[in-house]
Design a protein around this nucleic acid. Structure first.
Length: 453
DNA sequence: AAAAGAAACGCATCGCATTA
DNA sequence: TAATGCGATGCGTTTCTTTT
């Protein structure tokens, strides 16, 4: 049976389609009696608006988009459900691998007018969105890109609360397991962690990366013999760099052919867990200048982050000194771990069986935290007697495992709601600023206890 | 003020005319 | 006869202009 339209309602009510539209949209232009009659007939006929017709008439898709990178993480991390609970809008969801694929989706959505705007699950592509012409809001990240507003969470306060709590329990050797966090910028978390540790005088805390290392906030490419170019994001740098390569960097010298340079294989190595020339993962090494600036960023580093930059050996400089950007790992290695939990478990095993094992671990995701629990059990360690575990994500998983995990509860639904609201305003042409969601809170459960002396 | 009527939105599809 | 090009039409809704 054909679905009823406003034409059917108009015919039955003896009015024009325009009158029906006004009546059903609560707009002035019809009498209350006519409005009531039209509303009743619409209800009797079971009318509901056609979204395609509205999109046709209004020039709007009536939906927003979310591109989720790191499908492996999505498969196991429950954050998305909590986030979407807050969004409460028609949402087009797409899963891709890597920033380039993500940007391609945005361009296609824009060309097809598939969505009116997008929520960005990270800051990597934010700098590109204004150029593409899609209104966007960055989720979870810090206010970093001036063109794109962010809705973010105060990880600094959360890190402070966690470290204070652990310190009060006597913990001094604390390791942060930095995983492939999806809705937070790992650089901000790292900075928050370091700052809080410094404030508490904790000298034995450190970060170990179990997934991709943080990406730089801004990138400068120094092509051999060419003009220095500055890009707001790694994605932009890779795209620009590739374009430059196509034209041969002004046909200058310096092209040494395929896989030139010491880091040329970084991209083809798949998931690399080791750091660059400095050796230890997650710590600055050779090629680093003073704190806050990294020089000599190698081609392979960018390529491995999902941006195949092409051939050549241009020097690439990351600028973590840009807003809210702490120190960087020396090499941006494999952008996408395929088995986050297994990788995390391996790292925890190394930590706990090595010299000076930590008495507490703070895990970026609940999956990592569960992996830590499992490994501790494998090694015959009791949680929390021998090891305290804190998750930086509080999902159902944290309550289901035994012992239940102490966790930082982040306001994900609130974040989603705020982001959707900001995006709606942005689409309507209003000015939107950065917004900070409620402060994350530490929920203590059975996985944390006094440090073993 | 209330209501009617027409135009517009973007795209797919159809039918007709023209050409090879 | 087949292929191609082009204009007309319809879909459902909103919005603007005109009329009562």
């Amino acid at each position: 049976m054909k679905r009823p339209t406003i034409t059917d309602i108009a015919r039955q009510a003896g009015v024009s389609k325009g009158a029906v539209s006004y009546a059903l949209n609560g707009r002035p232009g019809v009498s209350e009696a006519t409005r009531h009659r039209i509303t009743e007939i619409a209800r009797e006929l079971g009318w509901s608006p056609s979204s395609t017709a509205r999109a046709l008439s209004g020039g709007r898709a009536g939906a927003i988009g979310l591109v989720a990178g790191r499908p492996d993480v999505l498969a196991v991390e429950p954050f998305l459900t909590a986030l979407l609970e807050g969004v409460e809008r028609e949402l087009v969801l797409r899963v891709v691998r890597g920033p380039e694929a993500e940007l391609a989706v945005y361009r296609r959505w824009r060309a097809e007018r598939r969505v009116d705007g997008v929520l960005l699950a990270g800051p990597e592509c934010a700098g590109e969105l204004p150029g593409i012409g899609l209104p966007a809001v960055v989720l979870g990240g810090p206010p970093e890109c001036r063109e794109v507003p962010s809705v973010w969470m105060d990880d600094t306060a959360a890190a402070d609360e966690v470290l204070r709590y652990l310190t009060a329990l006597g913990h001094r050797r604390v390791v942060r397991l930095a995983g492939p966090a999806v809705l937070a910028d790992p650089r901000v978390r790292e900075e928050a962690f370091r700052t809080a540790a410094a404030r508490l005088g904790l000298t034995e805390v450190r970060t170990v990366h179990t997934g991709p290392a943080p990406l730089p906030a801004a990138v400068t490419v120094h092509p051999p013999g060419g003009e220095v170019v500055r890009y707001p994001t790694v994605a932009a740098a890779a795209a620009g760099y590739r374009a430059e390569m196509a034209t041969g960097f002004g046909r200058s010298g310096g092209m040494t052919g395929r896989n030139s340079g010491p880091a040329a294989d970084a991209g083809s190595a798949g998931h690399r867990s080791s750091a660059g020339p400095a050796g230890r993962r997650g710590e600055p090494g050779a090629g680093f200048g003073r704190a806050g600036e990294v020089t000599g960023y190698r081609r392979g580093s960018v390529a491995s982050a999902g941006h195949r930059a092409g051939r050549g050996a241009a020097a690439i400089t990351a600028h973590p000194g840009e807003p809210a950007a702490p120190r960087l790992a020396p090499t941006v290695h494999s952008g996408h771990t395929t088995h986050a939990a297994e990788t995390g478990a391996g790292v925890v095993r190394q930590l706990l069986t090595g010299p000076q094992p930590p008495t507490a671990v703070l895990c970026d995701t609940d999956t990592l935290a569960v992996a830590a629990l499992v490994v501790a059990r494998e090694l015959g360690l009791a949680v929390p007697r021998d090891l305290s575990v804190v998750s930086w994500d509080d999902s159902d998983l944290c309550r289901l495992v035994r012992p239940a995990l102490s966790a930082v509860r982040r306001p994900l639904a609130e974040l989603g709601g705020l982001a959707a609201s900001m995006l709606r305003d942005l689409i309507a042409g209003e000015d939107v600023g950065d917004v900070c969601a409620s402060r994350p809170r530490l929920i203590t459960r059975g996985s944390t206890g006094r440090a073993r002396s």
